[in-house]
Design a binder for these strands. Structure first.
Lengths: 198, 198
DNA sequence: CGAAAATTTGACATGACTCAACTGGAGTGG
DNA sequence: CCACTCCAGTTGAGTCATGTCAAATTTTCG
């Protein structure tokens, strides 16, 4: 089996149990696709037509406010699903952009194919439910932490929790993800370094 | 059929199609329960053992930080599901409290019963997937809005979107939900009133 | 009516933003 | 190999949004 597809199948098998037949039946519904750095998987205003699983690479999902400022909603790396779920489920124009920060390889499943898959293997409903539940729980904690912690604490916690992301994306994006300005993040880092020395 | 159960069945039927038989089969798995104002449906440290659907009343889900400050994660009203999903799915101690703000009637389904239900009517996996997807999409927007908007804008948008909640919970809880202090919210309201007059 | 809870007020402190300038790489092309 | 540009990151001064604390006031409700 193609190793990218295998990666997804393994991801599924870690949460539900697929028979050999089911695994084989799923494969033809999957669509492998490559993006270059900077390319968009979903653009604001377009309708998101696929569920997207990241095989390798790195993406960000962001929102552009009225003043033209970017607000990063989420990063996505290897083994994560990423989408504008609202646009996908209601087939309305996306509010978020999803852009590749590196050359990125993904597996996509169109809505139609997805419905076929759910008929083929209804267990997949459970798989996606579990995935999204996890994402929801993380979002809830993020909301709370945004309120309960200072920017400095959030930054330290971010680089502790996601070192692989923190090391591989520009700082101004981390600032945006945390909801602070790049200048302020810069001064926080300065503080942190001098804290460490003294 | 008991009218509370009917309320849930209708809620389900608005998203998926249940046969008459399935509807009848679901009922015995449901558990009706009443709470008084102030009572806890889930307490921090306990394990959440049920999915909980609110038939009537009003609840809040909140987190207590190290300094003892409350941070409201969500409100729940009629026709909403509310839970500490993380605790429920992993059967680990809850980080959030879920407390009734009024006398509240709920329908609960234990994990075991839920598994039975999923076997009985696998479509329910889809129903819960759709519910949680919606909640996730809302959370994402909330994160963005917390970053893109000022406290005043968030407050106005909150009372516009959820007037029924805004009118029925104390202001200090709205402040907590928005991530600001009750004093600051008070001064925002003063501004808003004087804006309106001039 | 009286006590407790919720809200408001005001003085003051500070975390975080703005803006503009500067530094320092990483290409790129001559 | 240098000059040039572009982009990310840093700095610092000034400002604004929001927080803190303590007290006064209003509302709720037994």
């Amino acid at each position: 089996m193609n190793s990218s597809f295998l990666k997804l199948i393994n991801h599924i098998n870690r949460r539900i149990i697929l028979t050999e037949d089911e695994q084989q039946a799923i494969i033809p519904h999957l669509n492998l696709r490559s993006y270059l750095k900077g390319q968009y998987i979903v653009q604001e205003g377009d309708v998101s037509r696929n569920e997207t699983f990241i095989v390798s690479g790195k993406v960000r999902s962001f929102y552009l406010d009225d003043k033209g400022n970017e607000h990063i909603v989420a990063f996505g790396i290897e083994d994560w699903w990423i989408n504008d779920i609202c646009s996908y489920t209601t087939q309305t124009p996306a509010e978020f952009n999803i852009q590749c920060l590196e050359p990125t390889e993904v597996i996509q499943i169109s809505r139609d194919k997805m419905e076929e898959l759910f008929i083929l293997a209804p267990k997949l409903e459970r798989y996606f439910r579990l995935i999204i539940q996890k994402a929801y729980a993380n979002m809830s904690k993020r909301i709370v932490n945004n309120h309960a912690q200072s920017a400095k604490e959030r930054y330290l916690s971010f680089i502790g929790t996601y070192p692989d992301i923190a090391n591989r994306v520009p700082q101004y994006m981390i600032a945006s993800y945390l909801g602070i300005t790049k200048e302020f993040l810069s001064s926080l880092r300065k503080q942190i370094h001098s804290d460490a020395k003294s």
